[in-house]
Design a binder for these strands. Structure first.
Lengths: 364, 364
DNA sequence: TTGTACGCGTTATCAG
DNA sequence: CTGATAACGCGTACAA
């Protein structure tokens, strides 16, 4: 039974070689004698030797670890993202420090400090604001490759972006074609791309349909479930309340549903509903909820790939940006507004709910 | 703008002191001169100095990091657990390496190796089997404080346990009182406490009710959603299918619901349904699903506390174990079996679904 | 092909 | 109270 973690010195003496030779075997350098190699490998096996990564980091500089700061690992889409990124990084020999910011600036700064101490080799980050100078300064002093998650600025860093516009556009098209003219939108504050992109697409589609933009129908606060509940409730208690509601955040559908229930409304008869991530909740709600879907796991894999490629030596001021598509998935949560002449045929199909679903155009 | 990460040597010379003094200031040792202290702290601020934790680990031994190996961070209850544990550990100055095993033995061994290299100070672990000798050996060679998550053996390690018996017992009592006599149970393989405890409680309650135990009604495979779907489907396609179904795993409710839908059955009229974690899905499903609830976040906090206390010096062969209660939450997913004389009054209340819920006895 | 010796950034010990 | 120095485990020039 092996006791304490053996050092390379012990390994060397056990194999009857010098530490230099032992090190060469460990990192399989070219010039090692046949017999010596076997002897050392044997000892490695016998002692259960593993190089101490702290010491390695100190010598070589790299820690083979990268950090991620996200809002909350408790949000299903973010968990999927993180899981996928971690798996990919693991395969490349990296470990991932997963840190949750709760979308708080103070906490973000604190976590950046943690990562600085730990000297991670890279950072995947979705800051709570794209323009906060303190956060940007803290990032810069890290002096690391950074991959922004769905944040478009600053331009100097790589970014993995989601094309919210397309999915949102398809969703709006659908609602408008059903006859909705008052469409509520709850999302995060527009200091961050996912919100602003959604709002842009929302306004654009309204304009195309010749409908005036009514700012009271767009409520922006946190991306979290509680904010969603609160803001959705506000919309639903308007005297001229919207006939459709879009939850513009991956964790907001639950809050919206809760608000709708609290208002004793039913989906889709009283109000049509669209969510922004394809979760268990969206699938199993009754009726199943239409969502703007994007593949979180794929985003995680690609993020890992992007940052690894950067770590692998790509350097210079040219930043890489990757944009992933989103698509609108129709299920049973949308219908013509009450009092509107219904398009029976199409509606019946959609209302069947559950497994058979229609995916919007941009499927490829 | 601070460039590279400054070393203690640079800090010392910037402050005009020796590295020894600098170090003393950093770790606020008692004997430091008033003026020198100010001078050094000033330089720390100015340079943005942070001690390199790799170097610290090398010197002191401790890495101030602890590892957790869990099934899948994508499972909501596990995400909540992990998040809470991480927050508590963060407050104590530790970082948490979150690693996902997918309940695979090979992967577990691989991840244990990762943690060995990284020299974490402690491990929180829910192994896929309580008795697998390879895993136990790998754990032992880590030579670390280990906290088992809902695993009762081996006894030598601390453990945080969930009292599945109580919640399961209450659930069974409810079903039996409604008149169910054929109750299906899908759960994980009984190589692990959560499964075996559930099965034990299930059998005990049946026996008390004078009902013969029918092994065809208990299906054990993975704890994951797909296994749940598959095993639940098998139960539902029995010629004499159960009138109630318990999903005995924190990630299994979705699979059970999917199976029920695929079988074109409806809850609770055709079949009563009980889940094992209080998730969004359980809350927002229609009808809202009865669950056996336990507080994952609280478990996370307590786990952190337990392992910290162990790290703080508690030593010796005496292991600490903490058991947390579970409780049965009644909502709208259970009813008397079809054809059974219904208890109308009680049922109506439960069927109202949604927010008003009745919590089982053990509420304290 | 192999061994020796130095340095990475810290902290702790020991003199002064 | 402060400064110099050894040691932690490893990789790598450089020497043999």
């Amino acid at each position: 039974m092996t006791r304490k973690k053996p050092t390379i010195k012990e390994l060397a003496s056990a194999a009857g070689v010098s530490v230099g030779t032992a090190s060469r075997v460990i990192n399989n350098h070219p010039n090692v004698g046949e017999a010596v190699l076997r002897r050392v490998n044997d000892a490695i096996e016998r002692l259960g030797f593993t190089p101490d990564s702290a010491a390695q980091s100190m010598r070589g500089g790299a820690t083979r670890s990268i950090g991620i700061i996200i809002r909350d690992i408790t949000v299903p889409a973010l968990a999927s993202f993180t899981r996928a990124a971690q798996d990919a990084l693991h395969d490349a020999g990296y470990v991932l420090f997963i840190l949750c910011s709760t979308n708080s600036k103070e906490r973000e700064l604190e976590l950046l400090e943690v990562l600085r101490k730990r000297r991670v080799d890279g950072l995947i980050f979705a800051p709570s604001s794209e323009r906060d100078p303190d956060i940007l300064a803290a990032c810069r002093r890290l002096d690391l490759p950074i991959l922004l998650l769905d944040r478009s600025s600053p331009q100097e860093w790589d970014a993995l972006l989601v094309d919210h516009e397309t999915g949102m556009g398809e969703a709006m098209d659908h609602l408008l074609s059903l006859g909705h003219r008052r469409i509520g939108l709850v999302t995060g504050r527009p200091v961050v791309r996912p919100s602003s992109a959604r709002i842009d697409a929302y306004r654009k589609k309204l304009m195309e349909a010749g409908i005036d933009y009514d700012p009271t129908l767009v409520r922006t606060d946190g991306f979290d479930l509680d904010s969603a509940f609160f803001e959705a409730s506000a919309l639903l208690s308007l005297q001229d309340r919207p006939t459709a509601l879009i939850a513009g955040g991956i964790d907001m559908l639950g809050g919206a549903i809760r608000a709708i229930r609290a208002a004793k409304l039913s989906v889709p008869d009283d109000i049509s509903l669209i969510g922004s991530a394809d979760t268990e909740l969206a699938t199993f709600s009754t009726p199943a909820t239409n969502v703007i879907r994007h593949d979180a796991a794929e985003q995680g894999r690609l993020s890992a790939q992007l940052i690894l490629s950067r770590l692998a030596g790509r350097t210079g001021p040219d930043s890489h940006r990757l944009t992933l598509s989103s698509q609108y998935v129709m299920r049973g949560s949308c219908a013509p507004p009450a009092g509107h002449s219904p398009v029976k045929r199409a509606q019946k199909q959609k209302r069947r709910g559950g497994n058979d679903e229609l995916v919007g155009a941009d499927t490829k």
